[in-house]
Amino acid sequence: MSEPAGHALPPSAPEPVLLPGRSLAVCAMIGAALMAAVDEIVFHQILAWHHFFDRSTPAVGLVSDGLLHTAELLGLVAGFVLYADLRRRHALAPAHASAGLFLGSGGFQLFDGIVDHKVLRLHQVRYGVDLVVYDLVWNGAALALLAVGAVLAVRARRKAGS
C-alpha cells in the first residue's frame, strides 16, 4: 500500500513457466497413492484376496505398514492439491505428468509386490493358491507400468528439449 499505484505491475498473470520436474513428481505421487487405493479397494475389499492381518507378519512389518498406509492417504490429498496448484499457475507439463502417473503407480506396485508381500510378509496376493503365478503377474504388471512410464518420460524429455 505504501507504493504509488502507478509502480505496481499490471494485474495480468505473469508468463506461465512450465515445471516439468515438479509435474512429474506430483503425478508420480498421485499415481502411487491411486495404486494404493486400488490395492485397498479392489484386492482387500472387493476380491478379499489380501488379508487385513497375517499372523506371520513381524512387528516391523506392522509398523511400516501403518506408516506407509498413512503416507498413502496424505500423499493422495497432497498430490491433488499440488496438482491443482500447478494448474492454477499454468505450470503443468502434460507429457511429464502422464509419465509420472505411470512411474508412480508402477513403482508402488513393485514396492508392494517385493517389500510388502515378500520381505515384510504383510499379506500375500491371494491365499490358498499357488503363489508363484500371482507374484509373477503382480510384479510383471508393475514392471510393465514402469516401462510405459519410462518411455513416456524419455519422449516427454525429448519433446521438451527440441
Binding site: L62, D65, G66, L67, H69, T70, L74
Partner: peptide, 10 residues
Amino acid sequence: LLGAGAAHAV
C-alpha cells in the same frame, strides 16, 4: 498427523 495416523493404524 502422519505419526498419529500410523500409530492408530498399527
